[in-house]
Design a binder for these strands. Structure first.
Lengths: 354, 354
DNA sequence: CATGCTTGTGCAATCGTTTGCATATAGTGT
DNA sequence: ACACTATATGCAAACGATTGCACAAGCATG
């Protein structure tokens, strides 16, 4: 009986609007009627876009408040072709770096009155394209791509013709971006280790396919090594890091690094470093007296683990702030300029980098 | 000259629409013209909402694809009074728990074709109200409140009359919720420590004002203690944990816990536990031989720190999945039922909980 | 007093989609 | 051949906010 009734109702929309939940949302029209003026006047009062007499203004505002008027932003978006929202594409929002970045983006976006639509690419081209398509359907005013991306630049380039785009922690020629000086920093770290006496090094990181940051970090290492003939060095790229960096770091140590037994291990990530330290500890190897280990990111816990981790800090808040402000500028047709943020070397117990 | 020109243009919207960036977005009308049918037919084909001849369908779909048609969801929202989006309010999205939760929400929401609008309350009533207001303006179909909240229940209760609401990791009488069994779990943890020989305990956590989870955790502790006369126990609530749990844990240890020197420390958070362990290590106190320490949350790094942390795992993915599915049900007027998720005790090196 | 400017307000079109209703054509049963 | 249904399509009215244009009233200038 009830099933039949439901089936007979032809229009889901109408049903929802007028049907079961009949909380009528106050519209401009309601306010206009209540205040005895036209809809246009109310609109102008509330947006402050024209000269309206003080008296009318007050009456309208009072009624709007009394009736608990809430703007219908779908209507505004339709009319103005502007949603006041930005889309953000992360590889995966759950990592500490991206989570902090997301939080900061939210903060700065709110200051500029943008709503934020987050999506995850899951480091998967197909998923990312779908996510971006959804963002475009939602009519975001601009899109932020944060972090490494496995997918083709061409997608972003094409997209850039339709909507303002800014990339964070990544650079694509011709697209506004905010990046870090990865190469120089790793060079400096290697140099500091050298100065403190290390002569054999292992660089450990994820495979660098298509990820410029990781490439740059390794290049910084190579830069130093190739200009110093008295050192031994090796780079290990392991795809297991894509999944669980901590576990992979641990496994990698047991399999390979222990045999090489270098003076210092430079990693591209704190989690990898923590995994290695954990495995080294179990193997009876002391960090840093037997071997130095450096991380990358300065995770919140890195200062508190034992031994505390020497690492590289990236100012994530600055990245977020710059990204939001750049995409805002791009949306408003203002000129934008690429930015590079300097990383900071943090010396703690696991390696002497002072 | 140019400045004058810009000033003379009266309508920002029109300017944006027809002006500088004149990329005309394909509409139903364009597709209709191209396919030689009416707008309604195109709409029906693309939404599959009515019987349309196979031939017409194909022609329309082909044209839509050729012209790269993208739905204007503002228009649809306006017409149907439904945005297919949900709002999510977090205290702060950058913590590991919330970040993982956000990621999972994104995943399940996408499966049900919802866009997600995240906001942060910053544990601040005023900010939260503003955030919620923004969500309402955007016309979200439902709202998820995740995590502890400092603000008044009344706000949520009032809101619940306007829009479907589900709370995650928190319960408010009369509002659908997904929660964890905090009280029982901490009871069980205390019991296990007791069984392994501990007789003096310190419970360490944030002040529990208005945060039921924290209250429940401490109550589980109290439950056990008050039913066993042969133990010594104390609860310490420290407001410094609101800021930097790691650092505060460390300071608290040095100031107080060291003097008490209990057999076991039960904390309400992994970070607090890590801070304490770090300080204990510096003070020459061995965990767990001198003192057991338990955490709460099972952060990713907790298995890899030294000593590895015994803690309590909450299935965050399950929480997210249930929340999304419940709010979806609520939106579609289906009945919803509160859910409680069981926590899991993880025994590692820092305390014997097996 | 005629003209022009300023200020305050309303009318009505518009944004792109959805959908109730009308209609046209084809097919079925008697 | 007639009525009747099913299928396929179009027409036009909404949804709520914005804004160009029109216009009225008030005021100042020559």
């Amino acid at each position: 009986m009830i099933a039949m009734l439901v089936q007979k109702i032809p229009c889901l929309c109408k049903r929802l609007r007028k049907g079961v939940s009949n909380i009528h949302k106050t519209t401009l029209k309601d306010v206009a009627t209540a205040a005895g003026v036209s809809v246009s006047t109310v609109s102008r009062v509330l947006s402050g876009s024209a000269s309206i007499s003080e008296e009318t203004c007050e009456r309208v505002r009072a009624e709007a408040k009394r009736l608990n008027y809430t703007l219908n932003s779908a209507a505004r978006s339709l009319r103005c072709d502007r949603t006041h929202s930005i889309g953000v594409v992360f590889p995966d929002i759950s990592g500490e770096f991206y989570a902090i970045c997301a939080s900061a983006i939210l903060k700065y976006a709110r200051k500029k009155d943008y709503a934020v639509l987050f999506t995850e690419s899951g480091r998967n081209t197909v998923a990312e394209e779908k996510a971006v398509r959804a963002l475009m359907e939602r009519g975001v005013d601009g899109i932020l791509f944060i972090g490494d991306n496995t997918h083709d630049e061409i997608v972003i380039r094409t997209l850039a013709n339709e909507v303002p785009i800014v990339t964070g922690d990544r650079h694509i020629e011709g697209i506004p971006s905010v990046t870090y000086n990865n190469r120089e920093t790793i060079y400096a770290v290697t140099e500091k280790l050298y100065e403190s006496g290390c002569r054999s090094f292992v660089y450990v990181g994820e495979p660098t396919d298509g990820q410029d940051n990781l490439k740059m970090r390794n290049l910084g290492f190579i830069d130093f090594i190739s200009s110093h003939s008295d050192v031994q060095a090796e780079s290990i790229f392991d795809s297991r890091f894509h999944d669980d960096k901590l576990k992979a770091g641990s496994e990698l140590f047991i399999e390979k690094i222990k045999a090489i037994s270098p003076d210092a291990i430079i990693t591209s990530n704190d989690l990898i470093a923590i995994g290695i330290i954990s495995a080294a500890h179990k193997a009876g190897i002391n960090i840093p007296s037997d071997m130095s280990v450096t991380g990358f990111d300065d995770l919140r816990a890195s200062a508190y683990i034992i031994p505390s981790l020497s690492t590289i800090r990236q100012d994530i808040t600055k990245l977020a702030k710059l990204c939001v402000s750049m995409v805002d500028d791009a949306i408003n047709q203002k000129p934008v300029q690429n930015a590079v943020i300097m990383q900071e070397i943090i010396s703690r117990e696991s390696a002497a980098l002072a």
